[in-house]
Write a protein that binds this DNA or RNA. Structure first.
Lengths: 346, 346
DNA sequence: TTGAAAGCGCTAACAT
DNA sequence: ATGTTAGCGCTTTCAA
């Protein structure tokens, strides 16, 4: 004898009553409920998830989909860990479990997602590594499966997303650099089709235009979003005839390699070139400390979770105010890497 | 009509035959099987996991348990992503899915694991962040649940584990430094009870003893396994009356902060002090490049998966040779941070 | 307030 | 080679 039957037999009551007691139904004697709960603890009973799912059609699991060949995403060491922590803080209030769905680099993300959905694995999903055109969004929207994406996409099915405020970063950084006399400002973007590259570069261009400046195509550097990519960008930049006086690094991880290549050439951030990047755990420990845009990762996780739950019928009443289609603020942390100020001569 | 019933109706055959065809049973007409497979693709049918699990008692899911409040483990996203990729390469051969079970920093890992197990969530488990004394190991062993740990523990239930070869690292690093004339060698260890600290320090002590040297207790530095911890270690080290001439950094992430604090004091690795650490994506991009121990993370993932499967009745015949209780080699990558050589005068 | 029983989707034992 | 059916553990009617 196993499972709920065993518990019922032990208490000499029916399994139906046990189930009702455990699930907090009102139509059960409080004394009975107490006995059931007590026995459950004593016998270490936890409802079998498969039985439950089969009956209810829900799993109490939320999947966070991510890709495992990490060179792709360009997030730093601890990005997801911190976000997860926030997501979980919300889910634990509702007895939901977070699992990371790991799509291998060898498998097509859409195929993987299809499998996950067909198997009825999760009640809701969080998608990361959102592409500029992302078929996963249509797929889930068509099937009415609750989800939220971390990152905007042109594939907009009217579903919720949160994204980092790359526009805000672009605007603030450009304004800051221009105010310090910079006229030739370089920017970076990821090598692939991830949406943030487009958003960031476009807004940089607009922000420069507002100051009567143009974004030189030669000053848009593409790279893989990792240390080696940053190194390469710096080499390319140093090789230019007409070097920029400032650069914006849009990925977290490229600063380290970028600094190194500059250092080898005797070029110092903050003195010879202004550098503004993204916060990472290393940012404070670079020489000079990197001026960078930081965000509250754990809080982003909380917001993601709340946004998702606000689209799920069973939970929406808890989150009437949740964000939908919002950008997540980034805050400037002053370092010394953008100390270089130019006079009117540029 | 849904699921297998719908498929059967569509083909006008029984659900039993559909199931057999789909599961590759031999007792089914090949022409029938072809039709079933074709229709399944056409209708996008994938068996519901809950139904399957309930019937078979297996889930085809392997859980990789990890903690989400990253300050604890010192391993970040990039470490696990690479390992996952290897694990998945093996699992995909057997139609097993890998999911990361994310234990929040607020929840006790043992409680979390208990829940996972009771719900019948996974067929097997990989545990990370193994503690020196780890109740999870006894718990799983008692219940005969297949698992492998990444990291050794004093709680040895005769179950398989893989661990990084911290002894090999300690031995090779100490030998190397002593050969270069170093007599006062410092080491680091994590601040908490994670097992690697004990293993590493003990072996360093032994290796030094073999050269007739003692490990000065003053030269054992504890820190949180992150950049700030490395910074603090360097500050403490610099404050010593009798400074060491060399140091071994056992964590991946502390090198960056360590370098920075030295730099601020005008002390240069490789010139004023010899530094040997662990490989990280940043290691090559430090100045000077860090001499460090590197390991093949993806291959470690493959080994973990194979070790786990070799303990599972349904798969063991595929992996007769799998490792059990093995340390995973680390390879020395020569940088310039340990270039400092001392003459006999030390 | 409780008990009895149907049935979620699937696989496997048994029957044909 | 295929059809029929019991039953995995659970929740939820329906009846009492």
């Amino acid at each position: 004898m196993k499972g709920i039957r065993r518990l019922a037999q032990h208490l000499d009551i029916s399994i139906g009553t046990v189930s009702r007691a455990l699930n907090g139904r009102p139509d059960v004697n409080e004394e009975t409920r107490r006995r059931v709960l007590e026995a459950a603890t004593e016998l270490g009973y936890v409802p079998n998830q498969s039985g439950r799912s089969l009956r209810q059609g829900t799993t109490n699991i939320i999947g966070f989909m991510m890709q495992t060949g990490t060179e792709i995403t360009g997030q730093g060491d601890t990005f997801f860990m911190s976000v997860f922590d926030g997501v979980q803080a919300v889910f634990s209030r509702h007895q939901l479990d977070l699992v990371a769905l790991l799509c291998s680099s060898e498998e097509d993300p859409s195929d993987y997602l299809r499998r996950v959905v067909a198997r009825g694995f999760a009640d809701g999903l969080i998608l990361s590594a959102t592409q500029r055109h992302d078929p996963r969004i249509e797929f889930l929207a068509e099937r009415n499966i609750p989800f939220v994406t971390l990152g905007r996409s042109l594939t907009d099915a009217g579903r919720p997303w949160l994204d980092l405020d790359f526009e805000g970063m672009a605007q603030a950084a450009i304004d800051r650099l221009v105010a310090r006399g910079h006229r030739r400002i370089a920017v970076t973007r990821p090598h692939d089709d991830v949406n943030l590259g487009y958003i960031f570069v476009d807004r940089c261009r607009e922000a420069l235009a507002a100051h009567g400046l143009a974004l030189d195509e030669e000053l848009i550097f593409r790279s893989t979003p990792n240390e080696a990519g940053g190194y390469q960008i710096a080499r390319d930049l140093l090789a230019l005839e007409d070097r920029p006086t400032a650069i914006l690094l849009v990925n977290e991880t490229i600063a380290v390699g970028f600094y190194q290549a500059l250092s080898e050439a005797g070029v110092r951030p903050g003195r010879d070139i202004a550098v503004i990047g993204r916060y990472s755990p290393q940012a404070h420990f670079l020489s000079p400390p990197l001026t960078c845009f930081r965000l509250k990762l754990r809080e982003l996780g909380i917001a993601l979770a709340e946004t998702l739950l606000s689209t799920m019928p069973a939970f929406k009443h808890h989150y009437p105010q949740a964000l939908v289609n919002a950008v997540w603020p980034m805050e400037l942390v002053e370092g010394e890497s953008d100390a270089l100020t130019l006079d009117a001569a540029g």
